[in-house]
């Protein structure tokens, strides 16, 4: 682990930085354009209250997808993240309903997420099982436990806790939780860009054998990534419990497509064809603004779902083309 966080060799960042500006920042431009269009059609979009709502859903979603971004950057996939969030959400709600405080409830929820992540990591990295099948199965088990905790329905949460304050207190249009998430993303960016941790992660996607031959424990790095995904998904589940004042066993469904869309769309900027956290963050904001604008314009939810699915398809197609031009093929590896 010490080897994985030592400073990176500087010349390796060279080629990635030489990509042109349009290719790297088009998503930011698209985001600004969309804000301008929605803002002119529906001025209430830009009111502080609505901005705070958008940023709150951004913060929750960003928490959930940080680990997922890195798992996908390493060429693996995790489709259990939203069910892990639902599990931690229901565990916290059930413990709160049983009279335990937010402290115990949060710790138990987080613990469940870390365990789920460790199981995923051990089965996928340790035994080399296919990531899709393993995470479908662990996700199904988590969803089942989550539903069983509430006997198939949701659990109301009466008690307010620290997390509730974090989510509902705003400084101007900025919810407090946003600052925490931005800080985490800033630290994560350093890990991804400036430390060997990030280089090994992308190297695993290119050739896991080569990484192992180079004497790096890809297994330990991958297990770490899956545990991180499980823990952060569980944290997002706790945020959702606090923000909705209830435990919802089916909470994950709507976050599933959004999460994957965000990671893949985000992979179209900064390092084209590689999932990266800045791209993910911009893409999540893009999707959150789209959701808010669609709601204000009165679009049905299924129309947004179709648009998002189409965006995801376009994103994949662009990534594959970009990779083919460079002669690489890592977007296809493991996916």
């Amino acid at each position: 682990m010490t080897a994985a966080i030592s400073p990176a060799v500087p010349e390796r960042t060279g080629p990635a930085l030489r990509s042109n500006l349009i290719g790297r920042f088009w998503l930011v431009a698209a985001l600004l354009a969309m804000i301008a269009i929605f803002g002119s059609l529906r001025p209430e979009m830009l009111e502080p209250g609505n901005v705070a709502t958008i940023l709150r859903s951004f913060a929750i979603m960003a928490t959930m997808t940080l680990g997922l971004t890195w798992v996908m950057a390493a060429g693996k996939i995790d489709v259990s993240f939203m069910q892990v969030a639902a599990l931690s959400n229901m565990i916290a709600a059930a413990l709160l309903a049983a009279g335990h405080g937010w402290g115990v409830a949060s710790a138990a929820g987080l613990g469940a997420g870390l365990i789920a992540g460790a199981v995923n990591g051990l089965l996928i990295a340790g035994l080399g099982l296919p990531p899709l099948i393993v995470t479908i199965a662990t996700g199904g088990i988590c969803a089942s436990i989550a539903a069983a905790l509430g006997k198939g329905t949701s659990i109301r949460i009466a008690e307010h806790g620290l997390l509730t304050d974090l989510l509902t207190t705003n400084i101007g249009p900025f919810p407090l939780v946003l600052f925490g998430v931005l800080l985490v993303y800033a630290i994560a960016w350093v890990f991804q860009e400036r430390l060997t941790f990030g280089h090994y992660m992308y190297a695993i996607a290119q050739s896991e054998e080569a990484v192992i031959e180079a004497g790096i424990s890809s297994r330990r790095l991958l297990i770490m990534l899956f545990v991180l995904t499980g823990g952060l998904s569980a944290l997002a589940g706790l945020f959702l419990a606090a923000s909705l004042s209830s435990g919802q066993p089916m909470i994950g469904a709507s976050y599933f497509i959004n999460g994957l869309t965000a990671v893949l769309l985000g992979g179209m900027m900064i390092h084209i064809g590689k999932p990266n956290i800045i791209g993910t963050a911009v893409a999540i904001l893009f999707l959150a603004v789209l959701a808010s604008g669609a709601a204000l314009l009165g679009w049905a939810d299924w129309k947004r779902q179709i648009i998002q699915g189409a965006l995801l398809l376009i994103g994949i197609a662009v990534a594959v083309r970009a990779n083919r031009k460079k002669g690489g093929h890592h977007a296809e590896a493991g996916l």
Partner: peptide, 12 residues
């Protein structure tokens, strides 16, 4: 890539 493509088409 098969997994992500079919997730997208399935969602559509």
């Amino acid at each position: 890539p098969d997994i992500v493509t079919t997730i997208a088409t399935g969602s559509i």
